[in-house]
Design a protein around this nucleic acid. Structure first.
Length: 586
RNA sequence: GCGGCCGUAGUCUAGCCUGGUAGGAUGCCGGCCUUCCAAGCCGGUGAUCCCGGGUUCAAAUCCCGGCGGCCGCACCA
């Protein structure tokens, strides 16, 4: 068969296209790079993967799932640091047309540049240091920005600038306060979101691996930095995980090290227990999707590779046939970076509160300007003075007055005599803090692709998709052995019964029975029910295992029970055994 | 974005160099046959030859531009 000369990625994508799992989008108009369509079977698998994730990551911990908009006003991504972080300065060689990042070129010449430089300052630096194209020696044209976020305007007449979110995370930070308050201030608190993200990749390739629009499943786990006890840690601390950690990478090693979570934490490799907990859970998640542990690893992101918001990040990677180790989830410790930034930009308090063991005395030291006194001395200048003073917190003013004895605004020095200075003592039982966050973040499209690749098998001349039954796009197939009308009649009855029971059922009465098994195997249907002539006599049918092709005879009334057990995760052979079924061979 | 290779039914491909409006395989649909693993036979269905422009009496074929795919470089926060 022709598929044997392709590599695995090509085989999987070919199957995906032929049988309706996924395909390139907008094909009739020539296509758009970095976009795909998930077809009916693909959607079915995706939904089942999402459900498994919901069970394992959200329901188990009573986390709170939200759905926020993908469009956000500019300020959200200014606060998050993405406008700066996603923006790079590029220069193009006038001779050969190659593009380079300006900061990389400069730092190669030993010139370190700050992020705040303007385009003309970049041009000057390149001119003055005579920086030429590394490949052809040509001169560079003027530098330009490129932003890999999708930009848009909000409102048809509006100039209000917005962006499509490059990660779903910001919704959970922005809406933190409302979720926290409307769900009775429990802490720690996990907020989850499943949704689309958008990145205007420069050159997306690799089919479903690098998309411009993709689905993510993310959790922001908020905790008290003074109490980072992880309630789930003990459950999994002895589980083994594969880690390619910083030390190994720096030593130049390419092989991961296998160790228990406990060991990774005690050696200081994973510096937050909850982060480690989610990493183990991520391993188990992929394992249940059919990706063995030895083909999974965590790669620690080094200082320069890490996102601007993270102090420690591990990428969970899966080994794919064509592309090698590919990231499918990221596990980042984002600290209080995001909430702090949103506090600053929104000027809203995004605190959580911790109850103190015993009430604590706090001294509140604040200074409030006294407009009447200021007006007496400075007259009409008061307007300008008060405007500038509004930019300070009362606490800040107190501190400035303590330190310098005066505050300088609008070109005048205001001494203590212009302020109402309040020093109060108060007993408090709770105190505010900015929660810290660890974030497990999964790329759904890549995971579904990896699941398909690991399920893909060739047996004799046929393709079999050995998907775990709980993610297969259809649970069961029903076939009459031949085109005998009585067999078809009974098969249709069973087909309808199984549909009523809630299953997605594949019915097929064309061609030979072998061909129909093959068609069902190819899309991963785990169970095939065959109605034969014995069925007409005693009401039994056979159930066939997709992976072993072994068949058992079962009363047709027990088929639903059988499917239910297989779909819940017990293997076909174990279920047949436990139900006391008789092996069938023709 | 740059460089190399490439783009023909649902899928895989022949034809392109040496212009004369597409051939195979498989799939799909129908029928015959068939008591369990893509069997066989008969019939049928199916292609804007990626898009646009140019050269020519005539373009899948030659030329130019674009789009898309793969590989390498760069990028992937």
């Amino acid at each position: 068969m022709w598929v044997f000369c392709m590599d695995k990625a090509e085989k999987v994508m070919n199957l995906a296209m032929r049988r309706g799992f996924f395909w390139p989008a907008y094909e009739i108009y020539g296509g758009v790079a970095g976009t795909i369509v998930w077809g009916p079977h693909g959607v079915a698998i995706k939904n089942k993967v999402i459900n498994l994730w919901r069970r394992m990551f959200i329901h188990k911990h009573n986390f709170l799932e939200i759905q926020g908009p993908a469009i956000a006003p500019r300020i959200v991504f200014e606060a998050s640091g993405h406008v700066e972080g996603f923006k790079d300065v590029m220069v193009t060689c006038l001779d050969c047309g190659k593009k380079y990042r300006a900061d990389t070129l400069l730092s190669e010449k030993g010139i370190e540049v700050s992020e705040a430089l303007s385009l003309s300052e970049f041009d000057k630096l390149i001119e003055n240091n005579d920086i030429r194209c590394p490949s052809c020696g040509g001169r560079f044209g003027n530098s330009t920005y490129f932003i890999t976020m999708f930009r848009t305007t909000i409102g048809p007449y509006s100039e209000s600038e917005g962006f499509l979110r490059p990660e779903t995370a910001q919704n959970m930070f922005v809406e933190f306060k409302r979720v926290y308050e409307s769900f009775r201030r429990v802490f720690p608190i996990g907020i989850a979101q499943i949704g689309r993200g958008y990145r205007n990749e420069i050159s997306p390739r690799q089919g479903p691996i690098r998309l411009r629009e993709f689905d993510m499943m993310e959790i922001e786990f908020f905790f008290d930095p003074e109490n980072d006890y992880c309630p789930y840690y003990d459950e999994v601390k002895d589980e083994e995980i594969n880690i390619l950690h910083e030390e190994l990478i720096k030593r130049g090693g390419a092989d991961y090290e296998t160790m228990s979570l406990e060991e990774a934490v005690s050696r200081g490799i994973i510096r937050n227990r909850c982060l480690g907990y989610f990493m183990v859970l991520a391993v188990k998640f992929l394992e249940r999707l059919g990706i063995p542990r030895e083909y999974q690893r965590f790669r620690e992101k080094l200082e320069g590779e890490r996102a601007h918001y993270a102090v420690q990040t591990f990428d969970q990677e899966v080994k794919l046939d064509r592309w090698g180790w590919v990231e499918v989830s990221g596990h980042a410790n984002r600290t209080d970076y995001d909430l702090s930034r949103h506090m600053k930009f929104s000027r809203k308090e995004l605190f959580a509160y911790r109850k103190l063991d015993k009430p604590k005395k706090v001294v509140i030291k604040e200074a409030y300007p006294m407009p009447r006194v200021i007006k007496e001395k400075f007259g009409d200048k008061i307007a300008e003075i008060m405007k500038e003073l509004a930019g300070f917190e009362a606490k800040e003013l107190y501190e400035l007055l303590e330190r310098d004895g005066w505050v300088k605004v609008a070109g005048v020095k205001l001494g203590k005599e212009f302020f109402d200075i309040r020093v109060e003592e108060k007993w408090v039982e709770i105190e505010p803090f900015i929660p810290h966050v660890v974030e497990p973040s999964f790329g759904l499209d890549r995971i579904v692709y990896a699941v398909l690749e690991y399920a893909y098998r060739e047996v004799n001349d046929r393709v079999v998709l050995s998907l775990p039954p709980y993610v297969a796009p259809m649970e069961v197939a029903v076939f009459p052995l031949t085109s005998d009308s009585e067999l078809i009649g009974l098969a249709r009855e069973i087909y309808e019964d199984l549909k009523s029971a809630g299953y997605t059922v594949f019915f097929d009465d064309s061609d030979s029975i072998g061909r129909r098994y093959a068609r069902a195997d190819e899309v991963g249907v785990p169970i095939a029910v065959t109605v034969d002539f014995k069925s007409l006599e005693d009401g039994t049918v056979t159930v066939r295992d997709r992976d072993s092709w072994v068949q058992y005879r079962i009363n047709k009334d027990r088929v639903v029970e059988f499917i239910e057990k297989v779909v819940s995760g017990t293997t076909f052979l174990e279920v047949a055994e436990s139900m006391g079924l008789e092996r069938y061979s023709q």
